[in-house]
Amino acid sequence: MVSSLAPQKAAGTQPSIRSKRRAIWGNIWKFKTLYLLSLPGILFFLVFKYVPLLGIVIAFKDYNLFKGVTDSPWAGLKHFQRMFEHYEFVDILTNTLLIAFYDMIFAFPAPIILALLLNELRKVIFKRTLQTVIYMPHFLSWAVIAGIMIEILSPSGGLINRIIEMLGFESRYWLGEESYIRSILVGSGIWRDAGYGTIIYLAALAGINPSLYEAAEMDGANRWKQTLYITLPALLPTITILFLLQIGNFLDFGFERVYVFLNPLNSANADILDTYIYRVGLVEMQYSYTTAVGVFKSVVGLILIVVANQLSKKATGNSLY
């Protein structure tokens, strides 16, 4: 009985597999234009994100540049142990966490607030002009941004110090005092990227049904209540997704963003994991050790985004996956 049913089951399974394959290839052919458009992005992630993952093995070896990855001797968890025992690592990790936390608190809400303010403007020409002006800093490199900020904060002739002197106070060397460098890093990031970040939020605001505002206005709701009970709930899914994406990059503040402002006077509060990896890994050629630091960053980011995604799914119903 069993032997007589087995061939029928196998015969029925094979056509189903073939039909699924035909359906998959049929969908690919049907949407071939979209797949071709996405091909550069797929290749980018393959070449620059997934292929470099093979280099993680260096963190578990005593990598020798001349022996190569395969012939270098295994070291186990030696470099991870050294990372946590190194006297500089705790201070650098603290700097990274504090700067990333300040950036989350002050820089993340900035595009939301800016988009809400722009959405209230009624003169289209003024609104478009203002949008263009606040978008422009995003297209400047961090080297240019740093040059502008250094000139503005210059102790001799800088705009900020001139205003301070006009008010009767003494000028300061802002970039030479470690107590100000974190504020400068976060503030320059807000100036550069807040305007560009409003694009997504303005697109989400454009999708809100105007009849909701009309009904609320007829019920006596002012602009503040309309924002509180209509606009912000409509923006919540977008805010949640972008917040989760930023959580995943919590320790990845950016090498070039900090390095252009770094000097011996402020490095105690500004040296982060990215600049530490550059200094120790590339300059001092300690490749295995700094690869271990990079793996630590990636693992922490993965844990943060998984935990935050689960909390967001339970609290708001919105998540990345």
Rank of each mutant, 00 (worst) to 15 (best):
Y229M: 05
T132M: 04
G197K: 01
V300T: 11
E165A: 10
Y321R: 01
A203S: 09
M149L: 15
F106L: 01
N119V: 01
F255V: 02
T240R: 03
D219L: 06
Y63Q: 07
R192S: 08
Y229D: 06
D193A: 08
Y63V: 02
L140C: 14
Y276G: 00
P7A: 12
K61T: 13
A110H: 09
I164W: 00
S183R: 03
P233W: 04
L311K: 07
W174T: 07
G207W: 01
Q246K: 14
A75D: 01
L282A: 06
L153G: 04
T70A: 15
Q131V: 03
A10D: 00
V295E: 02
I105C: 08
G187V: 04
I125H: 11
I241F: 09
Q131A: 05
Y63I: 02
V186Y: 04
A107D: 02
A292Y: 06
P7E: 12
G12P: 02
K78Y: 10
D274N: 10
G294C: 11
I58F: 05
S288D: 00
S72K: 00
R122V: 04
E151R: 11
T238F: 08
P264E: 14
A308S: 12
I247Q: 00
I105L: 13
R192W: 11
P237N: 05
I208R: 03
H138P: 01
F101L: 13
